[in-house]
Structures are given as C-alpha cells and as structure tokens.
C-alpha cells in the first residue's frame, strides 16, 4: 500500500526550478532512500512531506502531495497536525538546550500533554526505541549537550518518535557522525521500519544499499528512476543512474 504519493509536483524557489514534475509513490512500512548529487532536489523533495519548505519565502509548489490519500497542500490543512504525523530527523543533531528528558518530552508538551506519568513512560519508550535508554537512563536530568554526536542524533530520533508519527523523514541523518554511530543509526532504521514509513536522504551509496527497500535517484530536479533497491543497484534502467551508482559522476 502507498503511504505517500506525489503527482506531477513542481517546485520553484523564485526563478529556480528545483523539482520538475515528480511523480512517485512511497510504500508503507518500508525504507525509501533518496539519492543523487548535491543540489539534485532530494532534500527539497523530502521536505515536501512535512511542509518544511513553507519556511522559505518565495516557494511555489504545484501538483498533488498525498499523505494517506489526502492532499497536504490543500487549503485548510493543519500543518502542525501534519507534522505530528510526519516526523523528521535532521542532518546535524539539533537537540534543544534542555535536559535529555525535556528534549524527548518537548513534542508531547507542545501538543498539550501534561500528564507526568504518561510523559515519563513515553520518554522511556522512545529512548528505548532509539536504542539510547541504556546509555542515558541515569542522566535524564543532564543537558543534552553532554551527549556525543551519535547519541545526540539518536536523542533527536527519540524526540521524533515520542509523538508517534507514522512517517519518519531523515535528512542525511548519519552524515555528521563517525562510522560506529552511523552503524547504530542504520541498525535503528532497520528496526523501525516495521512500524514506520521511513524516507531517508543520503549521499552514501553503501548506506542506501544497506538500509533501504526502495531507492529513488534524483538528478537536476528530476526523478530519473525509482525502484526496488536491488534493481537500482544491480540493474538500473537508466544510464545516468548506472553512472552515478558506479561513481562515474556525482
């Protein structure tokens, strides 16, 4: 079943045509990797799904973006509600200057949840889901900045999971991390896909190969090819995909 669909989506930043007629489907409870050279539009495409592009002035979006069958760019859509359903993890770990506990609880609190027990229980579960609980359970009251970069990124994942989204967007979540932390994040992604629909932007070809079920290759704002990861990496239909994957450009 398709969790997200885009139909002929065009996006302009002022005069710059960043996404050119993208039509694509994203399967529920799977990991979709978006790959392509810098500036190809893959991050812009990712940010369509939680309307993060709205923050930039001069953006014009055409076409349909359907999440669970509903057009999220229709008038009257509650963007805050959408973002609760579509969580996001950013390229660099960006915890708030608060305690570890409060970082994870933030999403609950802004949604009006004040029940202490409920929050504590949800914080623990989210930290367990992001494989961080064992490392931080004794220092929940410490500042999030005391954690290492890799731990901070897993904290950001826990923070996103705490409000129970159904879709998780990850914008190069491991690019600022060391190999060991990267391995942990990848393992985590693998475990999370049972419950979540994950879309991950990555520069790292091996990573896309390791974690994703489907892969989409973007080039100059166009979707060149999207298919099962196996197919993209072993038998791409388009010669540009093949060139990129084999490292001939990019």
């Amino acid at each position: 079943m398709n969790k997200i669909e885009t139909q002929n989506v065009n996006l302009h930043y002022g005069d710059f045509h960043a996404l050119k007629g993208i039509t694509m489907s994203i399967v529920e409870n799977s990991v979709t990797a978006l790959i392509g050279p810098s500036g190809c539009g893959k991050s812009t495409y990712l940010r369509l799904f939680n309307r993060m592009n709205d923050l930039i002035s001069n953006v014009k979006i055409e076409g349909d973006v359907l999440v669970e069958g509903k057009d999220i760019y229709e008038r009257g859509v509650d963007v805050d509600e959408l973002r609760k359903k579509v969580g996001m993890v950013f390229q660099k770990p960006n915890p708030f200057p608060k305690t570890i506990f409060e970082n994870v609880a933030y999403g609950l609190r802004v949604n009006g949840i004040n029940d202490k027990e409920f929050i504590a229980e949800r914080v623990e579960r989210s930290l367990q889901q992001s494989a961080l609980w064992g490392e931080v359970k004794d220092k929940l009251k410490k500042s999030a900045f005391e954690l290492s970069g890799g731990q901070q990124q897993r904290l950001c994942i826990a923070r996103a999971l705490a409000i129970e989204p159904t879709v998780l967007l990850m914008d190069e979540p491991a690019s600022a991390l060391d190999p060991l932390s990267t391995a942990k994040i990848e393992e985590l992604i693998y475990e999370l896909k049972d419950k979540y629909t994950i879309i991950i932007v990555t520069h790292n070809m091996q990573q896309a190969g390791r974690v994703s079920d489907r892969t989409a290759f973007f080039y100059m704002g166009e979707l060149i090819e999207a298919d099962e990861t196996k197919v993209i990496f072993t038998n791409p239909k388009n010669v540009r995909t093949q060139n990129y994957i084999t490292g001939r450009f990019g």
């Binding site: 805050d80 973002r83 609760k84 960006n94 915890p95 708030f96 802004v110 923070r159 996103a160 409000i163």
Partner: peptide, 19 residues
C-alpha cells in the same frame, strides 16, 4: 536548526517562539 526541530515536532510558530 533549533526552530526547524521545534516546528517539525508539531509545535506552532508561537510555541516555537516562546519555547
């Protein structure tokens, strides 16, 4: 990045400003 993190968690613009 801080503001985006807050907004991405479903916080409204005003919640992001004061929190």
């Amino acid at each position: 990045a801080m503001k985006e993190a807050s907004l991405a968690l479903g916080a409204s613009k005003w919640q992001t400003i004061y929190k």
